[in-house]
Amino acid sequence: MLPHQRQYAQGMFRALVDESSGNEFEKLVHRLMELCHPGYVPIRTHGDIGDLGGDGLCTCHGHLYACYAPETFQVSKVRDKFFGDLESALIQRPEQFDAFVFVHNDQRGIHPVVAGLISEAQRRLPKTQLRQMGPRKLWNEALILDLPRMEQLLGQPIPVSEVRYAVGMADIEPLLKHLADNRPRHVRPADIPLPSTMKADYNRLSPRSQQVFREARPYVYQVEEYYRGLINHTEQDEVAAGFTAYYCQMREEYGDQPDEILWQLEGYVLGQAHARWERADAARVVVTFFFDQCDIFEVPPPGWRRPQSGTS
């Protein structure tokens, strides 16, 4: 799938999640997981036994999925749903799953109540993995789909001709705006210690690409401050997981072209449109932050040294 087609698909998938709730959201999750995982089995409710605590089961991974996407969020109902499904699954499916995954459609991230429920249940059940999966993680699953399967997921054809988009990774738009609006006017790069270029050399990034990181790195602290100030402390991890998933897809497509991968990662943040300079600068700061956090590109193995020039 071409990069602009993937950008288009991401926007359409986000819209589908926004527009779906209840059974429609559950059907969307089933369609996605069946396209991604041959061992995924949708579970329907049957008579007085219900669904035995799960909406879907992935036999290849041992994951049991419980979907919750109400039109209006009520704390008492989500608590009853979570513990009701979990307890039912533990009693009636004890040998069928290793991880219980609570799937939701909240684009802003996991609700504090849900985070608390998962934490509380994990303490009580240390041998059972408890996870949550929201729109970001669902999209990370979809990244592996080829064009025909992506069109099947979305229920519509994806344009073949290139379309320009002003927004790429919608989840990171507030961060981009924050960086573009608050860029310091005067920064002394000499005051900011720069990490070793070994990782850039190991990934064979060109001098021009390394210059992109060098120019952006003095502003990376703003990304750290932004994430520290968020109420939802899982957002950085979820955004990082999205970067990692997209990087892996780009490495598969452009494995021997590291500079092309870097350019595609900038497009992942910005979209495919020609961006204003302040947004382009902000995007490079974001990419540099996740490069330094080792969420994208490969980490040199222990003992690796740069090849000496002139050696074969």
Rank of each mutant, 00 (worst) to 15 (best):
A216R: 10
V75Q: 08
Y247S: 00
G303A: 08
Q308H: 03
M150P: 05
A280R: 13
T72W: 00
Y219R: 11
S88P: 02
I91E: 14
Y165M: 12
R183L: 14
L28P: 01
S161H: 13
G303F: 06
F13Y: 11
G50Y: 03
V114L: 03
A216T: 13
L117T: 04
Q210C: 10
C58S: 15
Q210N: 02
R108C: 00
I261F: 08
A121F: 00
P218T: 07
E298W: 05
L143N: 09
D18P: 00
I296C: 01
F291N: 07
P184H: 05
L125N: 15
Q107D: 09
S206N: 07
F73I: 07
V167I: 15
R183T: 12
D292I: 11
A190T: 10
D85M: 06
R279V: 02
Q156G: 00
L86Y: 09
A166R: 13
Q249S: 15
V286F: 01
D18A: 10
S76L: 00
E215H: 14
S209G: 11
D106Y: 08
D85P: 04
P70D: 00
A9T: 14
A190Y: 07
E141C: 11
I144G: 13
Q222C: 01
Y246T: 12
G84A: 11
F73E: 05
P258Y: 04
R228F: 05
P38F: 08
S206I: 09
E298D: 15
R6S: 09
S161L: 14
M150S: 10
D171N: 10
A245L: 07
H111Y: 02
D98H: 14
R124M: 08
G84C: 07
R131M: 11
H111M: 01
A142N: 04
G50L: 08
E238T: 10
T59D: 02
A170S: 13
P38I: 04
L175F: 06
E71T: 15
D55F: 03
F297T: 06
L16K: 14
C36W: 04
E225C: 09
M1I: 10
V269K: 02
T59N: 08
V223R: 01
Y68K: 03
Q5I: 06
H233T: 13
R93C: 09
D256M: 11
L205Y: 05
Q132P: 01
L28A: 06
Y247K: 05
V29F: 09
W263K: 11
L205N: 01
D256W: 07
P174N: 03
F291S: 12
H30S: 05
N23I: 06
D292R: 07
Y247D: 08
L28M: 10
I110H: 00
R79D: 08
I144V: 15
G168R: 06
A99D: 12
A241G: 15
T234I: 07
V113H: 08
M33Q: 14
H233P: 03
P300V: 06
A273N: 05
R123N: 10
G116E: 00
F82H: 10
D98G: 15
E141R: 12
